[in-house]
Amino acid sequence: MAETVLSSGEKIFILHGIDADFRNDGRRRCEYRSMEIETKLMPQTHGSARLHIGNTDILVGIKVELDVPHADKPNEGKLEFFVDCSATATPAFEGKGGDDLATEISNVLTAAYQTRNAFDLKTLCILPHKKCWKIYVDVLILQCGGNLFDAVGIAVKAALNSTEIPKITAATLDGGEPDIELSDDSYDCIQLDTSNYPIIITLCKIGDNYIVDPTLEEEMCSTSSIVMSMLPNGKISSVVKLGYGSIQFNTFTKMLQMGEIIGLRLNKTLMDVLKEENQFGRQRRIFGFLK
């Protein structure tokens, strides 16, 4: 990803620290860094969120458009993810350099949201066979400081939570052609029910132990990691193993269990924070990148 070069001495130092449950920045193995989230900071989008964890910076913008449903799924809307690794993160992402990483993250997101338990596409249907909503989720990775998948997962969930889809007052079939009327009041909109949207957790295996929220240096010391996406009702919607190493079966089960516990805790904290932010209402001052 980035240009950090670690000497073998530094790698051994990190390894021993993790064995002793004491990482370079003082965290324990199961602790996250402090995060900052702000939603609705891009007024030209229907929903947006910015997430800041350590050195990782993610910006998500949501745009909603009217579209025709697929022929083989006439009652469902569409959800499309697009990830862009900006060159601001590292010069290696210039031009098409960041495309591989972007495809991987976008695949993980698609796998996480594909089950109906997580996101029911039927809620996006307006007129079966004729009109549906298409939600474009665009992720912009501004800085890479380790733990990209988790940050993207949280930012996407926060952005979808803040999305306002314009309310449709009338949708009729006028002689075979769809006739859609939107509400005149631009603040009149429907929100998505994000209570069961997935949270992505990465568990990084370093030495004999596994950690959450690795920094860039810790990621370079790990041989393999598991990226799992958890739904708040306890189910797991996708699991992928990254890295070039292999893991034992027992370790795999233990990692899943730890991921489940942490995922539930993370999700609860996120929903509490988003509810708190919502309570400020429309008078909230938006800082964006100025703070």
Binding site: I236, K241, F252
Partner: peptide, 15 residues
């Protein structure tokens, strides 16, 4: 060697 080399899960399953 009794090692798992890759896991790929899609769906909605409990642990």
């Amino acid at each position: 060697h009794n090692q798992i080399s890759e896991v790929f899960l899609i769906g909605s399953i409990d642990t």
